[in-house]
């Protein structure tokens, strides 16, 4: 009996140890980052494509000129309210971080202190970004105006406030491969990179499972708006019947083919995509035409609707 108990305790300890090890942050090794030199000018295009300003500008900051990434915008979700931090190059922001720390924050969701970030910050998409692009992005961030605003804490209740549990979330839901695996043209590949990695379009246009993981089986097929109002549209060919030219025009000007003007968060997105090259907007359109058409709402997995699997 005593031996059995000891074995159990030992097993639990080992199990706990394994879990602790599995949920530990997983930064990019120094060796992969050594020798990278960022180009701030190139980084400006990465910055626009990645949409950093959309979330990290101060609330209601509509001023022209270089963006002040003071943070403070609030994002209400079913798990709690997340507050975007100051990521300007100041002591209150990320001014004292090394390049490696910044790249690991963006691409691995790990803070300089080794804490997991919540996936409200789309490192789940940026994890597919080229390291050179990230080095350029970091170089660009360092050229922006500093802000002395203090970052505010997230308002996330138990149990989601246990950061370590995000390690488990990462194990279950982080995907470092592209969702669309197919024979793609170089243009479609560029589009896949812009949509799936930098643009993180799936964050709003793909439905989530009950734990907040993206349902890649229903990729880009539309999702309830996280703010609780309405629906972010299906942008697979089943939902979006625009021509490639019409998609390009919307990304450039905000005008839909019906000459409505997109609103909500998409207005912010157009502010970014209007800064991309025509070739990049065209690549996004080509990719969107290549993703599998999925009717929305996509049936939940395991509901016995086998037609969705075909």
């Amino acid at each position: 009996m005593r031996r059995a108990l000891t074995a159990l305790v030992l097993l639990a300890a080992v199990g706990g140890g394994v879990a602790w090890w599995l949920t530990a942050p997983d930064p990019i090794p120094e060796s992969e980052l050594a020798g990278l030199t960022g180009d701030a000018t190139r980084g400006q295009a990465v910055f626009a494509a990645a949409g950093c300003a959309s979330c990290h500008l101060a609330p209601e900051d509509e001023s022209a000129g270089p963006p002040v990434l003071a943070g403070g915008q609030r994002f209400v979700t079913q798990f709690g309210t997340f507050v975007a931090p100051n990521i300007s190059p100041s002591p209150q922001g990320v001014g004292n971080w090394t390049d490696a720390q910044l790249i690991n924050a963006i691409a691995r969701g790990v803070s300089p202190e080794g804490q997991h970030y919540y996936p409200a910050f789309p490192w789940t998409a940026y994890n597919k970004a080229d390291l050179q692009d990230l080095a350029d992005l970091v170089a660009h961030l360092r050229t922006l105006p500093p802000s002395e605003a203090e970052s505010l804490p997230h308002e996330v209740p138990f149990p989601f406030n246990i950061r370590r549990s995000l390690g488990g979330w990462k194990l279950l839901f982080e995907n470092r491969d592209f969702v669309l695996q197919a024979d793609l043209t170089p243009e479609q590949e560029r589009g896949r990179y812009l949509v799936e990695a930098l643009g993180h379009c799936g964050e709003c246009h793909t439905p989530r499972n009950p734990l907040g993981g993206l349902r890649t089986d229903a990729w880009l097929s539309g999702a309830p708006d996280p703010a609780g109002d309405g629906q972010n549209p299906n942008i697979t060919p089943a939902g979006l019947q625009w021509s490639e030219g019409e998609i390009v025009a919307m990304l450039q000007s905000g005008f839909t083919p019906e000459f409505d003007v997109v609103g909500g968060e998409m207005a912010e997105v157009v502010r970014n995509t209007s800064q991309l090259s025509d070739a990049d907007r065209q690549a996004i359109a080509a990719y969107l035409k290549a993703v599998p058409p999925i009717e929305s709402p996509a049936p939940e997995p395991g509901t016995g609707d086998s037609t969705a699997e075909e």
Partner: peptide
């Protein structure tokens, strides 16, 4: 539309 309209 950005601030005052439902996406869809």
């Amino acid at each position: 539309h950005e601030n005052y309209r439902v996406p869809q």
